[in-house]
Design a protein around this nucleic acid. Structure first.
Length: 309
DNA sequence: AAAGAGAACAACCGCCTATTA
DNA sequence: ATAATAGGCGGTTGTTCTCTT
């Protein structure tokens, strides 16, 4: 940390910081910031990360917002332990691509490059070292993939004889990818039984009233485009209700639950066990790595040309 | 029950690349 | 063709959690 401070303290030299404004928040994101970011992106999208924090009223730099969204808040993030299949896929792809985490991540839907990088650095690397060690005595002059041929029951990546490193296509088993917003929307139907309320199409700005914003910090932020506030009042009642449900759900997941809102939460408690919950768990249960209970239900052909490009 | 060690994870930093003016 | 800018990527670090003693 000290080194960082010293480095940061060298003004006037080197590359300019991405954020000119001082006074921005750093470190862990608060639940309030998360809600603010989610709500803003849900409503306006994220076409311009640099301008986003200003317009969303966040005291963060755009990069920080982007990272938070991509690595944690994105609705299609798959959280929880990596399956054996996913781990084997990472190992195989790392063998091919090296530390190209984003490319590896592109072959693992729902996983982020950061997450994959962490998994690799924490235990996959060790596992490989161990495997190398245990096989060293009997195997010589063999690549890792030769020593550890992917079986059809593990990684799902198929190596055709003679084309080990020139894959055009790799079969990667993936979980069926559900659009979280579809899941949420489906929860509105009378028959829906296990999904959280849908995110609102319109934000309720009142929820931010407790978040102090320094008006000077974003002094040029007063021109938040009111035209982009696509408030559709034609169905205002339902939208407001959706907003309440969605925000209440977020608050519960983010630990902001207020007993005074119990009434609202009753709506949500009926939907426990929903898949959305996994997206907001503070931290997945202790990851003694691979779960053995995965059952890939889809096999996707991934065109590795995108990787080679 | 407390302390220490190690593991896991979120987030930051700075460089690189693509895009735009 | 060049410079400026924003987005993306990979390496690294600090904090928190879990396990062991």
């Amino acid at each position: 940390m000290k080194r960082k401070q010293e480095r940061a303290g060298v003004m006037g030299r080197g590359r300019a910081p991405c954020c000119q404004k001082i006074g921005l928040h750093k470190g862990s994101w608060t639940p309030q910031e998360d809600i603010r970011l989610i709500t803003y992106i849900r409503k306006h999208g994220h076409s311009n990360w640099r301008a986003l924090p200003k317009q969303a009223g966040l005291l963060r730099c755009g990069k920080s917002c982007r990272l938070r969204w991509i690595n944690y808040l994105r609705p299609d993030i798959k959280r929880g332990n990596f399956t054996k299949e996913e781990e084997d896929t990472i190992i195989n792809l790392h063998e091919l691509l090296g530390n190209k985490w984003s490319k590896i991540a592109s072959c693992l839907p729902g996983r982020t490059d950061n997450e994959i990088k962490n998994v690799w650095n924490t235990h996959l690397k060790k596992r490989i070292k161990h495997q190398d060690y245990t096989t060293q005595s009997s195997m010589t002059n063999k690549s890792w993939s030769e020593v550890n041929p992917p079986s059809s029951s593990s990684s799902g990546i198929t190596f055709t004889e003679g084309e080990e490193l020139s894959l055009e296509k790799i079969e990667i088993p993936i979980e069926p990818q559900l659009d979280i917003w579809d899941i949420l929307d489906s929860s509105l139907s009378p028959n829906a039984s296990s999904s959280p309320p849908p995110p609102p199409a319109v934000e309720n700005d009142d929820i931010f009233s407790d978040i102090p914003i320094d008006p000077d910090l974003w002094s040029d932020a007063t021109n938040i485009d009111s035209n982009t506030k696509e408030v559709d009042t034609s169905d205002g009642g339902k939208l407001a209700e959706d907003s309440m449900k969605w925000l209440a759900y977020l608050e519960e997941e983010l630990g902001l639950f207020d007993e005074a809102e119990e009434e609202t939460m009753e709506l949500i408690s009926m939907q426990e066990g929903n898949s959305m919950g996994s997206y907001f768990h503070k931290r997945p249960p202790s990851s003694s790595s691979s779960s053995s209970s995965s059952s890939p239900s889809l096999t996707k052909l991934v065109d590795l040309k995108c990787i080679n490009a």
